[in-house]
Design a protein around this nucleic acid. Sequence first.
DNA 1: AAGTGGTCTAGACCACGCA
DNA 2: GCGTGGTCTAGACCACTTG
Lengths: 235, 235
Amino acid sequence: MSRVQLAMKPIYQQLRDLLAERIAKGDWKPGAIIPNEGDLAREFGVSAGTMRKALSLLENEHLITRRQGRGTFINDPVAEGFADRFCSIRGANGKPMAGRVVASEITQASATATEAQRLQLTSGDAVWHIRRVRFDGDSALMYEEVSLPAVLFPALSESSTRIVLLAHQYGLLLGRAEEKLSIGAASEAAAEALQIPAGSPVIVLDRVLRTIDGRPVEWRLAQCRVATCYLAQIH
Amino acid sequence: MSRVQLAMKPIYQQLRDLLAERIAKGDWKPGAIIPNEGDLAREFGVSAGTMRKALSLLENEHLITRRQGRGTFINDPVAEGFADRFCSIRGANGKPMAGRVVASEITQASATATEAQRLQLTSGDAVWHIRRVRFDGDSALMYEEVSLPAVLFPALSESSTRIVLLAHQYGLLLGRAEEKLSIGAASEAAAEALQIPAGSPVIVLDRVLRTIDGRPVEWRLAQCRVATCYLAQIH
DNA sequence: AAGTGGTCTAGACCACGCA
DNA sequence: GCGTGGTCTAGACCACTTG
């Protein structure tokens, strides 16, 4: 009597996908309350326990928040704390960096080998390139080269290149980021942007952002200057 | 008919604690297979579903691995992949740094204000101090100051100061690490160890390691030199 | 074939927040 | 008091692994 599992995928995962689609499409807006477990279970013809497991998945993925006695709410992906959880480099106060960000260039090109590897594309697929600089007051702190698969982002408004806004705009639900931290030599573009000699040491943040389905959404290669001392003393 | 909840804590969490204790004590050795869900449920007088939830918690905390058709196995906390998952800074190949590590000094002292805050102690509690240097070949890469609550580690063998080994030795189950990355000025000790001028810029890794219960186990303040270029070029 | 973990069900009761 | 999510139960069946 149980539902046929066409895709050989557990029902609770299928439910998760269906519910996530409603959120992505905007059927359920951020901040809204959604029907309770029982009603949802009835609507999809499953038991309450199965629906519960699906909702738990969505909660682990930060798409919803459940509160005992209140209900289940859609999270705002752009809200502070949700948007910033992908970024590991912090300012002196421990909070995410809050400085000015200037996008200097937005172009389209065909994917390089590295981009294809990071974004799981085939070499030559169209990608957007964004170059931007993060400031702290008047001094340039960080130079970023961002690559986005053009197939996911048909058009890029120059007004906002923040990935959380873009993702929300195109109905993409961000899941996890993998970030590698290392030390490298400043590229020429980075050197110019940061006003340091080319080849001087920089912190390299290599980050791939994925949707909750695991599809790569953004590759960001950031170079951070270390030429001056911005932060608190040690001890 | 259900078990009394003295501590107002869900049964499945109490079970998790009991099972975790067995692992910590060494009743169940790494690599060993543990009884199946049904037997465990019967032993503790709970339903299979509740025991299942407890086991799921342990799996999320990387203490056990469950495999369909095989059984449930105790993970080895010292094994590669489990021990290295707390470290975010990587080498050029994307793998954790593998260089030589030299512990230069092991002393005991009373906690400073910062240590007390990070390790949730009261100022003046006894802590161990370990200073160590991480090498890449012949050059010093990273200077670390490690603080451990003396109450958790009665004695410190000089042979191995690796935290995963120490934790295992004293029956502590490591859970999560919070790591803050920033840029700072090299302290005098770091400058000497890294052979750079005091005050020159370094990457600062401020990490607090906790047990699965959330108790702080280690505070590590690492300073990483950026004076030369170790790694691959950008692009 | 037997044993394991994985999924799913249907229903009971509890703890919390609010009107 | 009512509706919500959170916990717990008892049992069925499925999928995978091994002998």
